[in-house]
Design a protein around this nucleic acid. Structure first.
Length: 157
DNA sequence: GCCAACGTTGGC
DNA sequence: GCCAACGTTGGC
């Protein structure tokens, strides 16, 4: 399948683009996703090398902080099996763990943080999922053209 | 901190 | 399988 593109949300207080860039191998497991639609995107559609817009949510301003890429096949999410984890799921077992993750690798931090407001005003992004009212999904598909436009903006061109 | 929008749960 | 109640998300 051709390379696909995604937007992945994270709260920068918990895990930011800078945190990702400081991880060993600049790679981290995207664990803790507990929404079926978001899980399905990871489990069923993501491929190694897919492009990721790294989105900072629940902060001011919210927006896209950088670029990452999918760095692993889908794997079972071990936090679902860990009673100490905030993402623990009592229904999950090692044999039957419904939750998945992929590893995500740092590509670049944007020279210019691209705010939501800016995305709203940019021609060509009218249908971008993250701009839709009430959209809370933490993993969203992005079109190649949207990805290209956001990257251009983030690089400061 | 507010609250609209949405997903999930559970009684029936 | 419906749907009201509840919890969560996330921008403001």
């Amino acid at each position: 399948m051709a390379k696909q593109f995604w937007l992945m949300k994270t709260e920068p207080d918990t895990f930011s683009i800078d945190d990702l860039s400081k991880r060993p191998g600049q790679t981290e497991s995207w664990d803790g996703v507990r929404n079926y639609q978001a899980r399905n995107y990871m489990r069923d559609q993501m491929k190694i090398g897919d492009g990721v817009l790294f989105y900072h949510s629940s902060c001011s301003p919210a927006g896209i902080a950088g670029e990452a890429k999918v760095a692993s096949h889908p794997l079972p999410d071990p936090t679902a099996l860990n009673p100490q984890s905030p993402y623990f799921d009592a229904k999950a077992t090692p044999e039957k763990n419904p939750w998945a993750l992929v590893k995500v690798a740092f590509v670049q931090k944007f020279k210019r943080f691209v705010t939501l407001d800016e995305l709203r005003t940019l021609p060509g992004l009218e249908n971008m999922v993250v701009l839709k009212k009430g959209m809370r999904l933490s993993i969203q598909p992005v079109t190649p053209e949207e990805f290209r436009l956001v990257l251009k903006l983030g690089k400061g061109k």
